[in-house]
Nucleic acid binder design. Structure first.
Length: 252
DNA sequence: ATGGCGCATGGAATGCGA
């Protein structure tokens, strides 16, 4: 089974890249973030044509998440239960026997800002809800754009902002690990400076000035089934790319 | 020292992302 996550930064603009990528990679499930479109504008027909069904939670201009899958998704959850939120940042569904959770974690803008406080509250609510979710679904993947680089090696050494690498954010990430989840990427060897996001400016991609902020965390029952986890940099090299690259997890 | 790109909205300039 192949499960991937990709922040597409507008599904409308990126649809051709997504369709091409699905044809090449043929994942069983693809988690998408930053759709930036309303539900009525979701390109369900085009994806159906490509052999994928979708469950989605859209929003005008900002946010928006979806899970694409070859087989039908079941038991769909929209946003974090028990957490009042106008922003559409989470969708969960069961694909076969795997619980797939797709999250677009808040950016946080700057340490100490209101948006930063919201980011930490959102993470806290997620962690609380996940306790029960993991108990209900032993095979679980938490995939998405976390907007957190968990360790120093996950950020370019010249990264100058505190946001994404601050201690409170990293503590929140570790709290997710403490639920028993494992960072699938770190189950395997990778080159130094492996990232999943690069700024559009400053020729950041060419200089590999990036962050690893897109993650797939797996439950104990899935950990032993992980066969590979890789960032696919190919779509980042295309014309008009998303600033994020997809991350692909293979399970046996 | 600053902003540098891309997207959305709306139909120019601004907010936001990371």
């Amino acid at each position: 089974m192949k499960i991937a996550t990709w922040n597409v930064n507008s599904l409308k603009v990126r649809l051709p890249h997504v369709l091409d990528w699905l044809a090449v990679q043929q994942p069983d499930a693809l988690c998408l973030q930053e759709l930036k479109l309303e539900d009525k504008a979701f390109p369900a027909a085009e994806l159906e044509q490509a052999g994928y069904r979708a469950v989605f939670l859209g929003q005008k201009t900002y946010n928006g998440v979806a899970i694409l899958s070859r087989i039908a998704a079941e038991d769909v959850t929209l946003n974090i239960p028990g957490f009042e939120d106008d922003q559409k940042r989470l969708i969960a569904a069961t694909i076969g026997d795997v619980r797939v959770i797709c999250g677009y974690f808040p950016n946080g803008q700057a340490v100490g800002s209101d948006k930063f406080a919201y980011k930490l509250r959102w993470l806290d609510a997620l962690t609380t809800w996940l306790q029960g979710e993991i108990a209900r679904h032993p095979k679980l993947v938490l995939a998405g754009d976390y907007n957190i680089a968990p360790e120093d090696r996950d950020a370019h050494p010249d990264w100058k902002d505190e946001i994404h690498v601050s201690e409170p954010e990293r503590a929140a990430f570790r709290a997710l690990l403490q639920l028993g989840l494992s960072d699938a990427f770190r189950l395997f060897e990778h080159p130094e400076k492996s990232f999943s996001w690069w700024d559009y400016r400053m020729m950041a991609f060419r200089r590999n000035f990036g962050l690893r902020i897109d993650h797939l965390l797996v439950s104990p029952a899935l950990r032993e089934h992980c066969r590979s986890c890789e960032v696919d940099k190919a779509p980042r090299k295309l014309e008009r790319p998303s600033d994020h690259a997809p991350v692909v997890l293979e399970l046996d």
